[in-house]
């Protein structure tokens, strides 16, 4: 279980990026964090990853305080961030250096097969397409079997087809060991395809604004009316979080509609 308690972050330049963010995420849940730019999504994720320290509050995983990168937590960035001097196989095995070579080779081979890149084991990262490179990054993060996997807009740089493909792929991989997934995204569809719960944040300072249970059966059908209904709820919450007018919400809630 991952427990975030009143997490806040003020950067040295005075920017108040995140304020009193609290959430409890049980093991194996998939949570999407969504919000306008500057709402502290990435700040939050980097704090959970232990890459930056929160200024206030606490982040605990199974009652262990997180203030530095931890073996139970893996992260996938927006870019694949593969090490260009290592082959695809060595990139995937990067986090397994403590294992004996034979065990490492076996795990890497399994992971390669699992992401469908067995034929690319010896290739250099420069020879991969964007989608392939991101699949290697996913394999690299999953191979040490983290309990929590953080994803910082992992598919935003990919085209729509590749993105869908990778979303399905991610769910498939998630089902193997069922780690907790925390996904930061701009894409409402992506959040609803993947997540059990959507957290909407509002900017300046970054705060939790709304929490929406998706409650749809898997695999999810993007064209179903239920999907659409939840999507509308998320979009409404997003609009409100940015203090925009919400024309299609209930009339009673619309400002100035009382006359």
């Amino acid at each position: 279980m991952l427990a975030l308690d009143k997490v806040g972050k003020i950067y040295p330049n005075g920017v108040h990026a995140l304020e009193r963010f609290s959430a409890t995420i049980p093991q194996g849940e998939i949570v999407a964090i969504i919000g306008g730019s500057g709402c502290g999504k990435s700040t939050l994720l980097r704090a959970v990853a232990g890459l930056d320290r929160a200024s206030t509050g606490s982040i605990r995983i199974d009652n262990i305080d997180i203030s530095a990168p931890h073996e139970k937590i893996g992260i996938i960035f927006q870019e694949p961030r593969l090490l260009p001097w290592l082959s695809v196989a060595d990139n995937i095995g990067f986090g397994l250096s403590e294992l004996p070579a034979a065990a490492r080779r076996e795990k890497v081979a399994q992971a390669l097969a699992r992401v469908g890149l067995s034929d690319k084991a010896k290739a250099w990262p420069r020879e991969l397409s964007g989608g392939q490179a991101q699949r290697v990054a996913i394999a690299r993060a999953l191979v040490p079997q983290p309990e929590v996997l953080l994803l910082d807009e992992p598919f935003s740089a990919l085209d729509a087809f590749t993105r869908r493909d990778l979303q399905d792929h991610l769910l498939d991989l998630w089902a193997d060991t069922r780690p907790t997934l925390i996904l930061v995204t701009h894409d409402v569809d992506e959040a609803l395809v993947l997540a059990d719960r959507v957290l909407v944040m509002r900017p300046r300072p970054g705060r939790l604004f709304a929490e929406i249970d998706v409650g749809l059966a898997r695999p999810r059908d993007r064209a179903s009316p239920l999907f659409d209904a939840v999507k509308r709820r998320v979009l409404t919450a997003l609009d409100r979080s940015l203090d925009r007018d919400v024309p299609d919400s209930a009339p009673a809630e619309t400002v100035g509609a009382w006359w």
Partner: peptide
């Protein structure tokens, strides 16, 4: 960004120098 990859895999100082 590459150094951060090393940090997420908790490389020690010498390992960071050697591997990254």
């Amino acid at each position: 960004k590459i150094v951060e990859v090393g940090r997420t895999f908790r490389l020690s100082g010498p390992a960071m120098i050697r591997r990254i």
